[in-house]
Design a protein around this nucleic acid. Structure first.
Lengths: 133, 133
DNA sequence: CCGTATCCCATTCGATACTG
DNA sequence: CAGTATCGAATGGGATACGG
């Protein structure tokens, strides 16, 4: 009788799963850039550099926490640059790198899709709900 | 001195914020399609219809719960169809609608971007971590 | 075979308040 | 102005077990 059935199998599965994720780094990156705030920040910066508070105002609904967190993450990934100007009220500008700009185009396309097809989705949703109800 | 400063201002801000979100439904939809599993499922279905368990195997890491949840959500939004064939072992096929297919193209582009630029991101990340450390 | 229902933990996120 | 720190609520998501 083995002490090792369910628990070991799960352990095993976990290891395999981790290995898969490591071999498939695309998923990680894809998950990152699929983040809600990432999309909004990158879109906001598409038209040019912006200051921290400008971003906060333009995005309208983001907390300082999430804004900072998202910006830091994007900076780390080389998608944008953070420039501090040590004037009396400190000034910090964020700007897309070429890499970030290339992604920006794609995310904007997705955003445009959402705007264009929102009606269709909304109607589909109502129709579906009507059936289900 | 008013009994109504901070609390009322927050209430007010909340109302305005809600109104904004309602006027800006794009964000909601954008958030939906930015979901991790949505991207994977839509990508998986890009090449043609698939059965439930095929999807589960192809995505490799998704729990039945999330798979069902994602599929239902996409069905509700009119991005895919669910076809039940009541044979003895039940057979269920999922297939993108034209609407879903149009989104699929965009998400595939994003996925391709992730694959193409993963190296760059990875290097940027290491460089950044080296500085910070 | 195709799910659904439940439990439950971990993470996320928003709100708030405070600092350089 | 540009954040950081902390807390609590909400959510996501995996494991598991069961129904059709």
């Amino acid at each position: 009788m083995a002490t090792t059935t369910a628990a070991q199998r799960r352990e095993q599965a976990r290891v395999e799963y981790d290995a898969f994720l490591k071999n498939c780094p695309t998923n990680q990156l894809l998950d990152r850039i699929s983040d809600k705030w990432v999309g909004l920040v990158v879109s906001a910066l598409a038209t040019g550099p912006m200051r921290y508070s400008d971003l906060g105002r333009k995005i309208a609904g983001v907390s300082p926490k999430m804004l900072t967190q998202t910006l830091r993450s994007l900076e780390r990934d080389g998608l944008l640059t953070r420039t501090v100007t040590p004037s009396v009220p400190v000034r910090v500008d964020y700007e897309l790198t070429p890499l970030g700009a290339s992604l920006s185009g794609l995310l904007s396309a997705v955003k445009d899709w959402a705007e264009t097809h929102f009606d269709e989705v909304h109607r589909a949703r109502e129709a579906h709900d009507a059936e289900t109800a």
